[in-house]
Write a protein that binds this DNA or RNA. Structure first.
Lengths: 337, 337
DNA sequence: CTGAAAGCGCTAACAC
DNA sequence: GTGTTAGCGCTTTCAG
């Protein structure tokens, strides 16, 4: 089966190659009967347009890029799957580009990626969504891009987000309603601004209940299991001990749980633990972790759809907001007397 | 910065475009001084060859594909990172193509992917590495491919593997040396032949110790946490109870641990648990899990290197074998009296 | 509504 | 060693 080209199709359908091109690209101004003829020839020859030729002539690549700094395998896979779902549906391919956001050359790296007509558009995940240097390069290049959960310069591009603050507010409220008042908080990596927002929800919920944020009860974490362990060690060494710990992500919550186990503390009887993200570990540890589920895949899909709309030159809505949900499992319970 | 083309470079260097092409592609037969001139022009103009033009003219895409059926996010990310490390180094891009190996149309899907000159070669992960229909399409197409951990038709392509059987043998031996003799085994998904091999290692170790494989002590699992729970429920309900459980992967081991906790069994005092893969969950659960670490990323990198060598038309070694290592943590201990 | 012609930027022959 | 000449398969003018 020698690959069919547009010429073969044109010949078979008895039209010019331009007409074939029109049909294949869904352009207007083709008589229905002509369109049918062409479509039939396409089917018979099992014709697929050659992407390279297309991009060379049309100056587009039919590829979109996904730029991320691997914070967590589960997150990345969810994002990839969501983006792929949207891009495949429209015949676009996905180029993945992991990078290190602390590398001083990231912006240069991105510039490099854009210097060639490799990608028609880019999707950024946190913390890249918030990096001024990267945003500048992108804006200057004119390449369309969409961000996931940006917290700064939101006017620079369309974006998709969830309300992290609200979800954290609800989880805190949930703990308060269980009778907890000394609630420890392990905050997220400061570079991940979206994760940092979760702290606001925690504080707001306390204040709305007439409580204050106690400085000792808040520990800085860095999104990793180990940083959660360290933070929890400090929190659980306090007197009086907090009766609950809310960590800004599941890995840190798992770290806190590990510390509780080591100290012989019963979860949730002596201390409740809550996380955020609903990663697989949340239901694989014992007791299973109460957490917040974010629609990562749906967000990524939405972002890709916004991007593709934009790539095709259409006007696009500036933002999209999806909801999270509270997942209550076994790690949270009534406050001890 | 209007993109520089090969013509600009040729003009600036005072040579023909063909010479530029030679230099850029590291072809021989260019006088060093000429080469230098060209290289200087390339640098000054910040010239990058246009990939589309290149692939159109040269009938190659400078892209390799990674075909996988997402068994676990951590595994996939490791593979991606390994492949990227190798491909980036050689200027190749990566196209990811997750798919469902149970979908009756996978082979057709692969054929579709190959119908266009989108990818110069393909890397397959288990269980795709073992799927006859896919292998057939690939072999017929003539596209180079490399497999990770294949168990069948090894002559069909170069491949990279670890010795799963040996690693499982060692872990079983370790448990035996701790005094365990009733060791339950939770086997892996039958579609994942490489995982299935781990059962052989278990059996061989027992036999070499003069023990027999007791049918009741072997439960079929399907690689998921939940399947591990189910299997462990059966195993731990036996009388006498097994004093150790060895699961063919970490997720199932985590499931077994969950069941032990629910039954109030102390791990490892009353029952030891061992896993395989050293996924993050292994050190995030309590007690931390003894397991086997495989060099996934290194294997993937090696596979990509083999593929790229092949893509460039060079002869390539048929296989490569990397070693796993035992990671002993807190979930295994001496057999109870 | 349809077609002819002119490239997109590069590599592959083949000459010199 | 180096240059010349054709395309690769498509989209884009611009005519009809």
């Amino acid at each position: 089966m020698g690959k069919a080209t547009i010429d073969h199709v044109a010949e078979r359908a008895g039209v010019s190659i331009k007409t074939v091109s029109r049909v294949v690209n869904n352009e207007p101004n083709v008589r229905p009967s002509t369109r049918d003829k062409v479509l039939r020839a396409v089917a018979e020859l099992d014709y697929r347009p050659n992407l390279s030729a297309r991009s060379l002539a049309g100056n587009r690549s039919y590829v979109i890029g996904l730029l991320y700094d691997n914070p967590s395998a589960n997150y990345v896979i969810d994002v990839q799957d969501g983006v792929l779902a949207a891009s495949r549906a429209q015949g676009y391919d996905l180029l993945i580009h992991p990078c290190n956001h602390r590398d001083p050359d990231v912006a240069e790296e991105v510039a490099d990626l854009l210097r060639q007509p490799r990608v028609d558009g880019l999707i950024l995940t946190p913390p890249l969504s918030d990096m001024a240097a990267v945003l500048e390069v992108l804006s200057a290049s004119g390449t369309p891009f969409v961000r996931l959960a940006p917290t700064v310069d939101k006017h620079l591009s369309p974006y998709v987000e969830t309300n992290d603050r609200n979800a954290a507010y609800q989880m805190t409220q949930q703990l308060l309603s269980l009778g907890h008042s000394r609630i420890g908080f392990i905050s997220g990596h400061p570079d991940h601004r979206a994760v940092a927002c979760r702290y606001e929800g925690y504080g707001d919920a306390l204040r709305d209940q007439g409580l204050e944020v106690v400085e000792d009860l808040v520990e800085q974490g860095y999104n990793s299991f180990e940083s959660g362990e360290l933070a929890a060690q400090k929190l659980l060494a306090l007197t009086p001990r907090p009766t609950a710990i809310f960590a800004a992500n599941d890995d840190m919550a798992a770290g806190a749980m590990m510390v509780a186990h080591r100290m012989g503390l019963n979860v949730p009887a002596e201390v409740s633990v809550a996380g955020f993200d609903d990663t697989p570990v949340a239901h694989q540890i014992w007791p299973s972790l109460s957490t917040v589920r974010q629609p990562i895949q749906a967000m990524a899909k939405m972002a890709a759809e916004l991007l593709l709309t934009q790539v095709q030159g259409k006007q696009v809505q500036a933002q999209s907001n999806l909801d999270s949900s509270l997942i209550l499992r076994d790690s949270t319970g009534p406050a001890p007397k």
